[in-house]
Design a protein around this nucleic acid. Sequence first.
DNA 1: AGGTTGATCTCGACT
DNA 2: AGTCGAGGTCAACCT
Lengths: 249, 249
Amino acid sequence: MLIESLTHPAPEALLAFLRAHLHARVTLHLAGEVEVLYAGRATSMAEAGDRLLLVKPDGSLQVHGPRGVKPVNWQPRTDHLSADLDGGCVVLHAERRSPAEVVRVRVIGCAQVTALNLADEALFLLQGSEAQMQQALARAPHLIEDGLTVLDRELLVGVGGIDLYARDSQGCFVVVELKRGKAGHDAVHQLGRYVDAVRAQVSAPVRGILAAPDITVPALKVAQAAGLEYVKVDALPQVQEEARQPMLF
Amino acid sequence: MLIESLTHPAPEALLAFLRAHLHARVTLHLAGEVEVLYAGRATSMAEAGDRLLLVKPDGSLQVHGPRGVKPVNWQPRTDHLSADLDGGCVVLHAERRSPAEVVRVRVIGCAQVTALNLADEALFLLQGSEAQMQQALARAPHLIEDGLTVLDRELLVGVGGIDLYARDSQGCFVVVELKRGKAGHDAVHQLGRYVDAVRAQVSAPVRGILAAPDITVPALKVAQAAGLEYVKVDALPQVQEEARQPMLF
DNA sequence: AGGTTGATCTCGACT
DNA sequence: AGTCGAGGTCAACCT
């Protein structure tokens, strides 16, 4: 996994190291004093400072400072990566088109640089996504309201899709918007848009339900004012009742 | 800057290393085979695989795989960090309250671990934020429309704030919503909300203008259908004309 | 390639 | 502490 590592390399040694590994499906880690320029959707410059640089085999690049999960500068995926000598310093260029962006990293001093092989064989499982919540509630719509019948999932209406489209025991159409976390007023507005879109196409009464484990106070007020309903549902609804359901027929 | 680095340390040596540096205002970098559990707002597990681990002095932790800017697992800022031996493996615990979350990293094999001092003395400048755009357009509202007079910035109306509140040459009130990038339909709806809120309080006619460097086709259609206007403005409006303005008085 | 949505979003600012 | 909105959001999915 550890391919090669240098400590305090001279610029020429660093350049050779980078050129040997940059395009070799390798993950690079560099710690050192660095100066970063970015130009693209916005423009930024960072004066020289101690930073941690990460370059992954997909060409993505990130420059980390001493705080936070977010890099100080980054490039999601580069179409072109190169290393050159400029004024006695190694300079990394990371460019991409669409959007047209470039990050230039000038390495003033390198304390350590490492080439690694990060093979990605590992299984990854995430529980609690909105997609899982949607699946669970589509199977057990009574967790939202008794007598609800799900007609569709991800129904496209105008722009965007309705998480759950259903009919209640009274025959009303019901638009359900799901949020896996606490719902804010943006979720209420999103629901309002979908309800409006359905009302424009259907003559029968249409209800809007925001289903989430929690809701902010302002969002609840906005919902009530707009005639939309909020229903508290668990983020990980346990749908094990069906296993207990006796076979009736 | 480079404090200490070990290659292929045994678990006991790694544990000593981590305990010596974890709470020493130091940035840690670890490359190795690792297994990660996360529980909090969601739940995830990653089987053993080659990963790159980063721990910063603020307690933030991230586990990187071979692709993308985003870590596979992370923890934004921990209240509690600890390292222990469990079944012959070093295990890192990173916990925080609010939200209650925990990340557990089991180090199965460590190829390299490094302690770094990332002093943050570096100046960072970002140009092209929406705040800068707002300031520039407030000073030069003619870039949006001739004869516009800005009355207010970030005017609070109901929930949320109006980026720019103005009056046009005809005496109409104008609500301006700014976007630094391409505007989507969410921006149009946001503008619509604000316009509605102002109309409810003012008897004079109210216009809504979406000012952005670009707009998606669907968003433009929605805007036109709702009687809202789109004005193309540069993301970095150069307001140097005022320097050329002759002193009239 | 363009558009939309979700995210363990992160992060800062403000109440 | 809670809420809100921006972000160079990123990244996945769909048309």
